[in-house]
Design a protein around this nucleic acid. Structure first.
Length: 773
DNA sequence: GAACAGATGGTTTTT
DNA sequence: CCATCTGTTC
């Protein structure tokens, strides 16, 4: 153990974090608190909240002698969780090294050597729930198996809908269409998604499910059908001992409440939750159960978050749980007078220039109605970035159409990234010549899609116009990328050359058939180009050998071949899947789909070629169709570039605002309306909604029977609040330069992003607060 | 005030 | 491709 003073000294000197009372009273107060002091940290953008969490945790260990295994720290995304973990490990070790070298602490050597930061429980709430349920299960009980998204869809399809032909049920269709507010793209797949969403919401909001059914039955006959379909789904999962994410958390909460995890709770002392504003009721209840145990053990709970950055209403996130945390903490935690959490505002912003901070503050204060949805009396963000830096003005680029915008923007980007820089008045905007790269810049949009039907969006035009390659793996849906078409087409041609088996499958979704055909065509065209390497074996010969099941260079065809092996072999001929970052992301998504199959399918992604039982070959191929190729072809698989440690450093990053959360860039370009040519009601939901959108309808529908009760803000207000938060997040990512881009129509089209308020006023009229370029 | 042609645009995100 | 909105015509 060391004293707080020593700890503080080491952190300031060796980790270079200014946490003294004088330099930073708020961070100081947050980090130095004793173990039994709970805290509510309202942390604005760029205020160093992860830093505070990590330093708090290390302080508990080094100063208060808390055992690492009694600390539990969670956050919202896997990416953030792994960041938190690696920061704890690296800083924890740095402090250890300092102490080991200092003779003053020689008595602590054994303690320090045994200190194991890996024992701190970190992760997303789902991963932690899973681990704990696995570790602390009753003797003889099977561990819970968690299934992925596309597996849940498949199960809902088969047991929820196809049984009794519910997908043709008119009442159900009508109900679901009403619920999602529109018919566009409505098909069986969509019905599935919708039902799963209802089911998830029921868990998230802790809804009395049967009570809700009673309530709704008279309102709409479709609800009863939905109720039945969801029950069938739940029953099926129960039979197989499978859990989807929502059920896993619900099970965790249930076991906590019924004292089945008391062994685990006994050792728990400190609970820290990051991104608390994105918690839903189910998660909150779990945290409170954990906190109750921690408080009993002389510990505390710390939550960190920012109501202005709550973006996950669709996932059941209820920002009220955050804004009302203090009150909820005292009423929901089942203890005699639990010690009250202290409220600390971390308002200093170390990320951005003064102009950017003021711009963000101004933006969040424009709309008086929005203030009612925020934490009460929340102070504005204070610019505290360490000089020297240039305080660039906020920039705006608005052009008559998206093509012109893309051209001019491309020129701007090229000037900044690889030429002499871009001159605006007295300011020269240019990436750092020594260590700068295209990753210093990021283009943020609400959707990264490059093309929607025939409409080509800004990212498409940027890819066309820019001489620097862009990184936008979510720009196209996976099944429509060239790489996927070629790889999957080749696989299909290998395993089922004449489409015999494909044709023999009944009920194959139309979109799957269409894509299979397009894949095969693309693949055959590619084979005809005779791609390298052509020696020792050309792609054509390889495929032919497969089609005839005649091995090259060995006597007999193998009895079982994992589809994964075939995929990797084929990649030999697809160079972009070996060395192009986007190609690698696509490859990962495909191989993940194949390996995921092993969890639930009979053939586990293996092809069986046994001459004695030829029917098994057919079954194994059919199995692969249903569990691998159909999900891929129907768009059920999404790419996950979160697995890349860093963004590729020679590309211009294009990402959705959601993905940019938690990141920062020297130059941020925000698309505030490259799509808005007219004041059309169709796109109003993206800029100036008339009523609450999709997730608001769902909230209203489901929360009738939730302990939360119906939301108290009307749908339209919630929709405006969400849009404001959305762009607040986008704008606050910028460190040095913030550039807003859009169409010249911005003068006539109401848009939250350009400073219109919901009552129809435009305090930022003409956007005179920025320099137009 | 109905009926029809033509215009318009079509989320996103997570475990 | 197609639902939905706008504008024109009767």
């Amino acid at each position: 153990m060391i004293s707080w003073e020593n700890y503080q000294k080491i952190v300031i000197k060796h980790l270079n974090r200014k946490i003294s009372q004088e330099d930073n009273p708020n961070q100081h107060q947050a980090i130095s608190a004793p173990t039994e002091q709970s805290q509510f940290l309202v942390a604005g953008p760029g205020s160093g909240k992860t830093t505070v969490m990590v330093l708090k945790i290390l302080k508990f260990i080094y100063v208060d002698d808390v055992h690492p295994s009694s600390i539990l720290a969670t956050t919202f995304t896997r990416k953030a969780a792994s960041e938190l973990r690696s920061r704890i490990l690296s800083w924890g070790d740095e402090i250890r090294q300092v102490l080991l070298k200092d003779p003053e602490f020689s008595e602590m050597h054994t303690y320090l050597r045994l200190l194991d930061f890996n024992q701190i429980i970190t992760g997303t709430l789902d991963s932690i729930s899973n681990d704990i349920l696995k570790m602390h299960r009753a003797p003889g009980a099977a561990p819970p198996v968690v299934i992925q998204d596309f597996v849940t869809s498949a199960l809902m399809l088969n047991v929820g809908l196809f049984k009794e032909e519910k997908h043709h049920n008119e009442d159900l269709r009508d109900y679901l269409i009403k619920l999602r507010g529109g018919k566009f793209g409505f098909n069986t797949n969509e019905m599935c998604k919708q039902l799963l969403e209802i089911k998830d919401r029921v868990y998230y909001d802790q809804v009395e499910w049967d009570e809700l059914a009673q309530e709704k039955i008279n309102e709409h006959p479709g609800f009863e059908v939905a109720h039945q379909a969801i029950n069938d789904y739940l029953h099926e999962l129960g039979m197989r001992n499978l859990f989807d994410y929502a059920m896993l958390e619900a099970e965790f909460l249930d076991q906590l409440r019924t004292n089945k995890l008391d062994d685990f709770l006994q050792g728990l002392k400190l609970i820290l939750v990051d991104e608390y504003q994105d918690s839903n009721l189910l998660q909150e209840q779990i945290y409170f159960q954990l906190a109750e145990a921690a408080l009993k053990n002389g510990g505390s709970m710390t939550v960190v978050g920012d109501d202005d950055q709550s973006l996950y209403r669709f996932r059941g996130a209820t920002v009220d749980l955050f804004t009302n945390f203090l009150e909820r903490f005292s009423t929901q935690i089942n203890l005699e007078e639990p010690k009250k959490p202290e409220l600390i505002y971390l308002s200093q912003n170390y990320r951005s220039t003064e102009n950017i901070v003021h711009f963000c503050n101004g933006f969040s204060q424009l709309d008086t109605e929005f203030q009612l949805a925020r934490v009460k009396d929340k102070p504005a963000i204070i610019p505290e970035r360490t000089p020297p830096f240039t305080d660039f003005p906020i920039l705006g680029m608005f052009r008559k159409d998206v093509e012109t915008l893309a051209q001019d923007l491309s020129q701007f980007i090229e000037q900044v990234v690889c030429k002499d820089g871009y001159q605006v008045q007295d300011y020269l905007i240019k990436v750092n010549p020594d260590e700068g790269s295209p990753t210093d810049l990021s283009v943020l949009l609400s959707s990264p899609q490059e093309q929607v039907y025939k409409n080509k969006k800004l990212p498409y035009h940027l890819r066309e116009n820019l001489n620097i390659p862009i990184f936008n793996p979510r720009g196209h849906s996976l099944e429509r990328t060239w790489e996927t078409k070629v790889l999957c087409g080749l696989m299909l041609d290998c395993i089922d050359p004449e489409c015999e088996i494909q044709e023999s499958i009944e009920k194959l979704p139309y979109s799957a058939k269409k894509n299979f055909k397009s894949w095969r065509i693309t693949a055959r065209d590619y084979v005809d180009t005779n791609p390298e390497p052509s020696t020792p074996l050309s792609l054509k010969l390889f495929i032919e050998a497969w089609q005839k099941r005649q091995p090259l260079g060995r006597k007999t065809w193998k009895k079982t071949v994992p589809l994964l092996d075939l995929a990797y072999k084929l990649v030999t001929w697809i160079p972009t899947m070996q060395n192009d970052v986007e190609g690698l992301v696509y490859l990962e998504a495909i191989t993940r789909t194949i390996s995921e199959t092993s969890l639930f399918s009979n053939y586990a992604g293996e092809l069986v070629f046994d001459e004695e039982t030829p029917e098994r070959e057919c079954y194994s191929i059919k199995d692969a169709y249903w569990n691998i190729f159909v999900p891929l072809a129907t768009g059920a698989i999404k790419v996950d570039e979160g697995l890349l440690d860093t963004l590729p450093d020679n590309r211009i990053n294009i990402m959705s605002i959601h993905q940019s959360k938690g990141l920062e860039f020297p130059l941020v370009i925000v698309d505030v309306g490259s799509d808005f040519r007219t004041n059309h009601p169709k796109n109003a939901f993206k800029r100036f909604p008339e009523e609450g959108g999709n997730s608001c309808t769902m909230e209203d529908e489901i929360r009738v029977c939730s302990p939360l009760g119906s939301p108290n803000r009307p749908g339209r207000h919630r929709a405006f609040d969400d849009l404001t938060r959305h762009y607040f997040v986008a704008y606050s990512r910028a460190q040095d330069v913030l550039l807003l881009v859009g169409l010249t129509t911005f003068r006539d089209i109401p848009n939250v992003a350009t400073g219109w308020t919901r009552n129809g006023n435009w305090p930022w009229e003409g956007l005179d607060n920025m320099i137009m370029i």
